[in-house]
Every structure is written in structure tokens, then in C-alpha cells.
Design a protein around this nucleic acid. Structure first.
Lengths: 381, 381
DNA sequence: ACGATTAGTCCATAATCTGTACATAATCCT
DNA sequence: AGGATTATGTACAGATTATGGACTAATCGT
């Protein structure tokens, strides 16, 4: 619940810096006068706040604008991506990835390094990751950017900054944050992919992002914020019960969604998603049947998810994105039929536009978000 | 997301009033010096804030206390229930209820009026409710309490202050708030019952409250706050899919939890929960079987709920409370078996301690909460 | 060229918190 | 019993930050 610390003068200013920066972030460049209008602060105060933000390099002046027809033109002030940026990182089953994103949420740099991380030794992989960080940071700095923090996406559960369990990597209880001398965050891949979709995808503020990978995960975004649950484990769509007495799942349960719609079930012996798409395009009945089964199971699990989570819409991502043309009908039909009386219309079912990069981008965006939400602290103003 | 309005001097003080009042609310009476320590504010500031809160009548001094062994003893200041109170209201299928709760969350008054509200005319019932409000308000004022707001619990969905649909009452799109000349809120019965459990029950801050009534609902509380979803419709546990091709449910879906664990399914022809309990106590096999079925279905639905919502624990309330001895085993077994590998231990399964009053109490508590969270606004300081 | 209009800055004022000093009230020690 | 010690709560000057009106700046229309 709400903090119990009192508010002092400096937190008032910190808050107002965040209000001004947040307004520029939400609704683009504005003159000081317009910002005063929008925030309810006086022109004097806005001027003073902007001057601090200019100095920190997160905003810049971008030429004169005439608001109305008459009068002195104002100077538009907007976010500037020239100086401050953050690093997004991802450890996945078969690659390491990094990206650099500036304050305007523009992607400035992207690196992927193939690797075989299945049942790997954490120390080796983390050394590789540190090298990747060094490289990308150096390259970003060459173009004048200052990296002020990093976040890491991992395919597993995270609690209190520690990677608790990543079954596909074969890792348990790995502490990662200490390895970097930057402000650092670590989170689950599906959570960060949901945030990636929020900031770099459709830009809706309310949706459930469904991440199809080897496992199936989901991240719920409500009013622009990620819902994490009590222990940060919310959104485990993959183990929602679809058939109470169905086949055993590796989690110990039976008939979980993952059994029907996980990557292994979908590929059904094929070696890659690309090859599955080929088979589907050429009308292979076995591939179609697998998709149909997965779509049906997804429809059932998503019905439960809609009743419990009440998402604004549903975004299919990960391997579900390329399969969307074959999933849309069965999933949509299941949702519509089952939600029938409960809502005027079921949540819209759409495909993610950012595909495999969602998680790294979300990671970088997470730190950008912190800058926007509290520039005074993150930029030491 | 964060407000876009700037912070001025008066909001700094408003926030600090809330910080001090909130600290007293969370951790009981304290001296001014202790409050200064806890909040990080200076003794001077705390003294000044307390003097405003004393004047508003929400706190009072309660005698000398010695903190350490030496030194001048301080004067303890704590919440005072003598002057400010709120009204909780409930429209249910077969009764109207009201209660008055003071700032210390002590119940000061309680009224229940039996009624047959099935398929009723909203205007009639609302007139009855207004009479009830007048009566209880008058009685509360006689004992020196000022009623500063009211909230109403209804068995249906609420959106933007309007009762959208209450199938068991037969109401649709009824606007209620305008009928009262008090600050007023209206919310779903399961949501408010969850808040009742939060403030008047076990006092845990993280749990899923499961409300068994004619329908089955749930309210998720995370870190002391209710999770409502995008449209305020989250927590519809009753229509989570238990058996994808099970019997049709009145919602249009098939095999929903409500089909197996709603009041009608449990009673199985009996006329009341009390009579069901009698049959269970005397070992009636048919009654046991119904309970077993319901418990099994609840175990399946709650497994999905745990994966999606990640609750701290699970509290069974409403008609599930008296049936807890017969439900605990099948529900608990289902959860443990299905959650197996995913968590060290499944969330604890406990029974609600406040029974049928949960919703009215939660309603009154909701307005108390607003006073604690923003005394400056709600008490016009 | 001049008035109207709007943008941005200057400066005195106001609101609020901080920090030090001090009066107060209890216990401890001799 | 009396002074030393310790802690509470208040007073007052000082610091920080926002406000509001006056002023300067820049552009348009006539």
C-alpha cells in the first residue's frame, strides 16, 4: 500500500519534474505555455522545471511553433533521444540478445548472439552476457548516448531480483543483478514481452499478451501497468486447466493448456515453426489438426482468463504470431461461444506486431519507464 | 497511469496528513515523536499535522506513554471513532442491509430488513433503501457521529457507478448514486465482500476471496488493494471453465464452475444451506456427493485462478463458509495435486470469519479507506 | 508603424517543511 | 533531596519551491 514516508520540498519538485516529462511523453512536444495549461502549474514553474530537464539531456527545444493565429510563437520542447538511453537484455533457449533504446523509445542498436543455452552452466552464459553488455555499451557511447540502466528478460520465474527457476535452461536460484555495475532489473520473459507490446507494439493500454514459446505464458497490462500478482507469478496461462483429466503435464498437473498449445504439441515432430507454417500453407491435414487442437484449447483457457483477469483485448505473440491466420478462427469461435451472455462483445483478438523482439524491447522500455516516472532520481537531478 | 496534474503546496500537506493518518491506521497509536521517526518528517511538522487531524475529529490524544526508560513521556495519539463514520449498504436477493462503521473500523450499528427482491421493481426497492439510510443516519447522529459517505453492495456487475446487470434481481442499467445526497459509491457484492474480509476478517493483505452465493464470485486483494481488471469485471470465478464440454450454464458457456458449485447445485433440491449442513452432519450420502463434486470443481477452477492471479491465500466465504469442513479436503487435494511442481506450497486454503456480513462491512470500509487515504479532501481540511 | 495577442522571464510573496533552541517532564545517580 | 540525563513537544528563524502580477519579446493584422 501507499508509502509511509512524508513528502518534503524536494519530492514535490521531483513529482513535478515527472509530471512535465510524463506529459511530454504521453502527448508529444509542447511549448512551455501549453505545458503550464496541461499540468495546472504556472508558466514560471514549468520554465524552471524544463530548464532542469534540458540540462539533464532528456528534452530539447525544437524550434518555434505558432499555437493560435496571433501572438509571439512559442518554442516547442519535446523528449530528446540524443543523450540518455537504456539497455535491454534477453537470455533465451537458443540466443542472447541486447538492444539499446533511447528516451523517445527509439531503438538505437540491436545485437543477437546465437547460443545453445539448454541445460547450460549459468556462469558461462552470464560471462557471455557481460561481454555483450560491454560491447553494446561501448558502441552506444560512441554515438553520444549514456546508458543509465539495464533490464534482463529470462524464460523463468523471478522473485525479488533472483531468477528462481528456469526449467528450459536448467537454472535454479541464480542471482544475476550483482554482476553489472548499472541500475539493473530482471524479470520474466512473458511479463517483459507484454510491456514490449505496450510500448513498441499496438500501444493499447489494456490487453493480455499471450506469449507462445516452448511454454505458454501471458502478461496482463491494465491501464498501462503490468499486473504481477502477490509473488510476481501471475499470468501463468500455460498451466490453466483445459481438460481436468487430460494428459499429464511436466508441471505435475493434468490437461494444462501447454499440453495442447505448447511449441512441442504444435510442431508435432516438425523441426521449426517456419516448417510448420509451410505445411499449413500447403494444406497438410496433420498440421491443421494440431493447430485446430491448440486453438480450441487456447479458446477454453482464454475464456477462463477473461473471466478472471478482465483484459481489454487479447494479443497473440511469440510463435502464435506467425500461426495467427490458423489460430484466429478456432480461438475466436471458442471465446465468442463461451462468453456469450456475460459481455456485450468478447475482447478483440489480435496479433502482435513486434514478434520475437518483444521481450528485449520491453526490458529496455522498463528502465525508460523509470526515467519518465522519476527523472529526479534516475538522472540525479 | 500517473496523474498529469502538478503538485502544489497544498497537495504536499494533503499527502502528509494522509501519511500520518495512514501510519496511525496501520500500526496503532503513537506519540508525535514516534510518528516523526516513522514518517521521516520532523517533530514540528508532525505536531502541526496532528493538530489539524485532532480538530477534524479523526484522531484523539489518549494519555501519557513512556517509550524508553528515561525521559519525558509522550502523549499517544490514535485514531478516534467518536465523530466520523460511514454507511455500508447492501441489496441482496432476500434482504436489505445497512451498517455504520467508524474511523477505527468498529461497527457501530447494523440493520437488516428482510425483503423479496427477486425480479423486483428497482424504484420500490430503492425507496426502501432510502428509508433505511434515513433511519440509520438519524440513529448514528444521535450518538454524535457524522456520516460522511456511503457505499452500496449489489449482486451484479457495476461499471462507472451504474448497476449494469443484476440477473437475480432482474435489473439492468439502474443509476443509483443520484438518489442520495452523500458521497456515494456502488460496487459488486463479491468485490466488497473481499474488502470486508480485508478490513474486518483475517486482516491478511493478499488473498483471493471466494464468494459462494447463488452465483460464485471472487475478489482478489493484492497488497491491500482490490484488483478490478480493465472494465471492473475481474474475478468472475463462477464462469471459469471446469469441463470444456460439460452441461450448459445460464451464461451461455458450458461446464462453468457455477454449474457444479453454485448454490442450486449444492442444495440439490434441499431448501436451505442450514438443511444441507444437517444432512451432511448426519452423513447423508447424496449431500456428501454434491459437496464432493463441488469441491472437486472448485479445486480445478482455483488451480486456474492461482496460475493466472497468483493470490497470497484463498479464503472461502458466503455459503462456502458453513460448508468448509466438507469442502476443505477435496478442494485442497485438487490444488495440491495440480499445482505440484509450480510452487513450493500451494496458497493456504482458509475459511472466512465474517460470513454473511462481509459485503456490507466492506462497503462501509471502502469509504473509511478513502478518509484514511485522503483526509484533507474527504474531511475538507 | 502601431495595437493586439501570446510566450517566456523576473521578482516579490506565500505555503510548507526543516533545523536548532528551548521549555517541560520524567528517571537515574549520588 | 538535588542535580544530571534523557526524551517530548513547541517556537522561531531559515530554506525550498510554487504562485501571481508585471515586464519584455516576438509575431500578426490593419
Amino acid at each position: 500500500m501507499g508509502s509511509s514516508r512524508g513528502v518534503r520540498h524536494d519530492s514535490m519538485r521531483a513529482r513535478n519534474l515527472a509530471v512535465v516529462l510524463g506529459t511530454l511523453h504521453r502527448s508529444g512536444p509542447h511549448t512551455r505555455a501549453a505545458l503550464a495549461e496541461l499540468t495546472g502549474l504556472t508558466k514560471t514553474t514549468v520554465s524552471s522545471l524544463i530548464s532542469d530537464l534540458l540540462e539533464a539531456g532528456v528534452v530539447s527545444e525544437s524550434g518555434a511553433v505558432r499555437a493560435g493565429e496571433r501572438g509571439r510563437p512559442g518554442v516547442a520542447v519535446g523528449l530528446s533521444g540524443q543523450r540518455v538511453a537504456t539497455l535491454g537484455l534477453e537470455i533465451n533457449i537458443d540466443y542472447l540478445a541486447a538492444c539499446v533504446v533511447d528516451v523517445t523509445r527509439t531503438v538505437r542498436l540491436r545485437r543477437t548472439r546465437p547460443a545453445d543455452n539448454r541445460n547450460s552452466n549459468p556462469a558461462d552464459i552470464l560471462q557471455g552476457l557481460r561481454d555483450l553488455v560491454k560491447e553494446t555499451t561501448a558502441e552506444a557511447e560512441e554515438s553520444g548516448l549514456r546508458i543509465i540502466g539495464a533490464a534482463l528478460a529470462v524464460p523463468g520465474t523471478v522473485e525479488g531480483g533472483v531468477l528462481r527457476s528456469a526449467p528450459h535452461l536448467g537454472w535454479r536460484d541464480v542471482r544475476v543483478a550483482d554482476l553489472f555495475d548499472l541500475p539493473f532489473a530482471i524479470d520474466n520473459e512473458a511479463n517483459l514481452a507484454a510491456l514490449g507490446e505496450l510500448w513498441f507494439g499496438s500501444r493499447a493500454t489494456d490487453f493480455l499478451y499471450v506469449s507462445g514459446e516452448i511454454g505458454v505464458g501471458a502478461g496482463l497490462v491494465v491501464d498501462g501497468a503490468l499486473f504481477r500478482g502477490t509473488f510476481g507469478l501471475a499470468g501463468e496461462l500455460g498451466h490453466v486447466v483445459v481438460v481436468p483429466d487430460g494428459p499429464a503435464c511436466r508441471c505435475g498437473g493434468r490437461g494444462c493448456l501447454e499440453v495442447y498449445a505448447g511449441q512441442d504439441a504444435l510442431l508435432n515432430g516438425l523441426d521449426s515453426v517456419a516448417s510448420l507454417v509451410e505445411h499449413l500453407e500447403s494444406g497438410d491435414p496433420e498440421a491443421s489438426a494440431a493447430c485446430e487442437r491448440a486453438g480450441h484449447a487456447l479458446g477454453v483457457a482464454l475464456t477462463s482468463a477473461v473471466h478472471l483477469l478482465d483484459p481489454g483485448k487479447i494479443v497473440l505473440g511469440g510463435i502464435f504470431a506467425p500461426l495467427f491466420p490458423w489460430l484466429e478462427a478456432p480461438v475466436g469461435a471458442g471465446l465468442t461461444a463461451r462468453l456469450g451472455q456475460m459481455r456485450a462483445t468478447p475482447p478483440a483478438l489480435v496479433v502482435s506486431e513486434i514478434g520475437a523482439d518483444a521481450a528485449v524491447l520491453g526490458a529496455a522500455g522498463l528502465i525508460i519507464q523509470r526515467v519518465i516516472a522519476d527523472p529526479a532520481q534516475t538522472l540525479a537531478l
